[in-house]
């Protein structure tokens, strides 16, 4: 069991009203799964992903990640946890414009305190794998959307995470680029990386082994 959510609630208070972003979420995810989270806009998909990725907190319930009770961890411990085990891929890529492709991919390793020689080796491997070696000294603004997303994924993967979270990874890409990315995900999953993706597209959802539907912050139905 990689992670376990029990009775997760998240709300915001606007005056006297309480709007639920997440309502009574119960979820078990095993290692090696490829889960797709679907639902209309405002259903809480991204919120759920952020909670799982420990980027956001929740108001009620328990969340166990690899046996650790996340709600009881301090910021420092939480950061250490997701730094080590989780990689995040965004819809808008979110690369640091002031750094080159090489440096963008390298940055998570810096935060992990990895030595220079080791970093070089790991980044070189990653560049190779995604076949973007020739682009390593370019800046994000010089790349196409698909290439930027590749870099984003490379950055998410460089730390060898157990879990990859992807928030609409192909949202800003055309169909061909999107397909390439999804194939990549499939391959990664086969290599053992657990993937949870949020997506609008039925087609993309089918790459996964499981689909979760959300509506108004609540799990609608779990399906295959």
């Amino acid at each position: 069991m990689l992670l376990q959510l029990r009775g997760i609630y998240k709300w915001v208070n606007t005056g006297i009203n309480r709007t639920f972003l997440l309502k009574d979420i119960n979820l078990d995810i095993d290692e090696g799964e490829f889960v797709s989270v679907m639902g209309p806009s405002g259903s809480g998909k991204s919120t759920l992903l952020n909670v799982i990725g420990m980027l956001d907190d929740f108001d009620e319930g328990t969340y166990h990640f690899m046996g650790e009770a996340v709600q009881q961890l301090k910021e420092k411990q939480r950061t250490a946890l997701y730094k080590q085990y989780i990689g995040f891929v965004f819809q808008a890529y979110h690369l640091i414009d002031e750094l080159t492709v090489y440096e963008n991919i390298e940055t998570p390793l810096l935060y992990k305190g990895i030595k220079a020689s080791e970093r070089k080796a790991l980044v070189a491997d990653m560049l190779d794998r995604f076949q973007i070696v020739g682009k390593k000294d370019l800046f994000p603004t010089q790349l196409s959307g698909g290439q930027q997303q590749l870099v984003g994924i490379a950055r998410a993967l460089i730390g060898n995470p157990k879990l990859l979270l992807a928030d609409e990874p192909t949202g800003n890409l055309n169909s061909k680029q999107g397909e390439e990315i999804m194939e990549l995900f499939k391959q990664l999953n086969q290599e053992g990386v657990t993937i949870i993706q949020v997506t609008h597209s039925e087609k993309n959802a089918e790459y996964g082994s499981r689909i979760i539907h959300l509506l108004d912050g609540h799990v609608e139905r779990k399906g295959q």
């Binding site: 980027l55 950061t79 690369l95 640091i96 935060y111 730390g159």
Partner: peptide
Amino acid sequence: AREVGIRKTIGSRRIQ
């Protein structure tokens, strides 16, 4: 702000 957000997601602590 965006850079701060990105760095936090890829593992930076506030003090860094």
